[in-house]
């Protein structure tokens, strides 16, 4: 059971994730979009969307720090575990609250504004359930002040997955809330390519560097469309 959950599922999810992204990019570029519904409603979106996106970007940064940087590194850098913990709970809690508040506004908007509801896809619903439950559990863990040191259980296992030697034992001793959070997150990652979340990979940073006016020749753009 532990092997299935912590050594097989991650690879299934990652394979679906990578394969799904490639497939979607190859065959559904027309569907690869944030599908903005700002045309229909702007007041709630103006509140919820920056709040959610700001929160989730912070959260992603926090997860990268917590999961990818071993505790030994922060200690070597002179950061005591107490300081780390305070920062993780402080910044993480704030980011989580922002994300949750933003998401709540966005879900409320999607369900109550008729035009937005009608512009929604089935994949949006699935995405909202998975994303919402992941955030809820994660935030509950952070704010509950649970004393469990995930940098000794979840983080080593997470890194070991990418080293192709999954440390099943490490995660197996983590509390159930952490395990559930991780499980739903893997499901979300597997579902990612098939939802509107693909737009996260389209952050247009190239805009900062390119010339303002884009010229393309007819033949070049035609070749691109047919390949």
């Amino acid at each position: 059971m532990n092997t299935a959950l912590w050594a097989v599922l991650p690879y299934l999810a990652l394979t679906t994730f990578a394969g799904g992204l490639v497939w979607r990019y190859r065959y559904d570029k027309l569907g690869w979009t944030a599908r903005s519904s700002q045309l229909h409603e702007r007041r709630l979106l103006g509140l919820g969307s920056p709040l959610f996106h700001g929160g989730i970007l912070l959260t992603a940064l926090g997860h990268a720090t917590g999961l990818l940087i071993p505790a030994g590194v922060t200690r070597a850098l002179g950061m005591s575990d107490g300081v780390y913990k305070a920062m993780a709970v402080g910044v993480g809690g704030l980011a989580g609250l922002m994300t949750l508040a933003g998401l709540a506004i966005l879900v409320f908007r999607r369900l109550t504004v008729r035009a937005v509801l009608r512009a929604s896809l089935a994949s949006d619903l699935v995405m909202y359930v998975l994303l919402g439950s992941t955030i809820l559990i994660g935030l509950a863990i952070t704010l509950s002040g649970n004393g469990h040191d995930y940098r000794a259980s979840v983080a080593p296992w997470f890194r070991s997955v990418f080293a192709f030697q999954p440390a099943v034992d490490a995660i197996a001793k983590a509390p159930w809330a952490f395990q559930l959070h991780a499980l739903i997150a893997w499901t979300l990652i597997a579902a990612w390519p098939f939802t509107r979340l693909v737009h996260a990979f389209s952050l247009p940073l190239g805009y900062l560097a390119r010339p303002y006016i884009v010229y393309r020749s007819r033949e070049a753009s035609r070749g691109q469309a047919l390949d």
Partner: peptide
Amino acid sequence: CPSGAIYKRT
């Protein structure tokens, strides 16, 4: 356009 999706044909 941040994505560079709009273009002028040469």
